[in-house]
């Protein structure tokens, strides 16, 4: 273990940490890991011990932020960072007509973190009536990017075509 305190650097979220649910799960997992290491430090010689396993998301988070999960100080720093981030994290909600695949969500979150905010979280919802496209909801706005909205915006084209067809 290293006693060096981690250098301050910008917090980074991995691509597979997408939502508040993921963030809470990673936070609980990290706390459990930290407890596990603490229990292991307290055990007497010869007693069996079982370290908790870390998920891929936690490992990616640690890797992305150059944190060693074996270092207690790094773990404590990461827990504090996650707690602070949990209170001020920005999130965006997107509704789709069907359950999106992981690959699809990954593409979306990458785009959002590259173009909107590097620490943004994404909540996925279902809205079958959309047919296609999606509905984006931020703190104060709701942006309809569905096919239904596109139909509504371009209804004059259909109206014009109908009039052309039925005008004698």
């Amino acid at each position: 273990m290293s006693d060096e305190s981690p250098a301050p650097r910008q917090f980074v979220l991995p691509d597979n940490l997408i939502s508040f649910v993921d963030l809470s799960r990673v936070r609980r997992e990290l706390a459990a890991l930290d407890d596990s290491f603490y229990q292991a430090g307290l055990r007497k010689a010869g007693q069996p011990t079982q370290l908790s396993r870390s998920s891929r998301t936690l490992e990616d988070l640690a890797s992305a932020n150059q944190v060693s999960l074996l270092d207690a100080a790094h773990r404590a720093q990461l827990i504090a960072t996650l707690d602070a981030f949990d209170k001020q994290a920005q999130q965006i909600h997107m509704s789709f007509a069907a359950e999106p695949s992981a690959k699809f969500v990954s593409h979306i979150i990458v785009w959002l973190r590259q173009n909107i905010h590097s620490l943004i979280l994404l909540e996925i919802g279902l809205q079958p009536s959309l047919a296609a496209g999606c509905m984006v909801r931020t703190n104060n706005k709701m942006i309809d990017m569905s096919l239904r909205h596109r139909f509504f915006e371009n209804r004059h084209l259909l109206d014009q075509k109908i009039r052309e067809t039925y005008t004698p």
């Binding site: 920005q90 959002l112 173009n115 909107i116």
Partner: peptide
Amino acid sequence: ELERNKPAIIEDI
């Protein structure tokens, strides 16, 4: 569509 509404989303964020 996200690219088209990018300014509005950034502004709100």
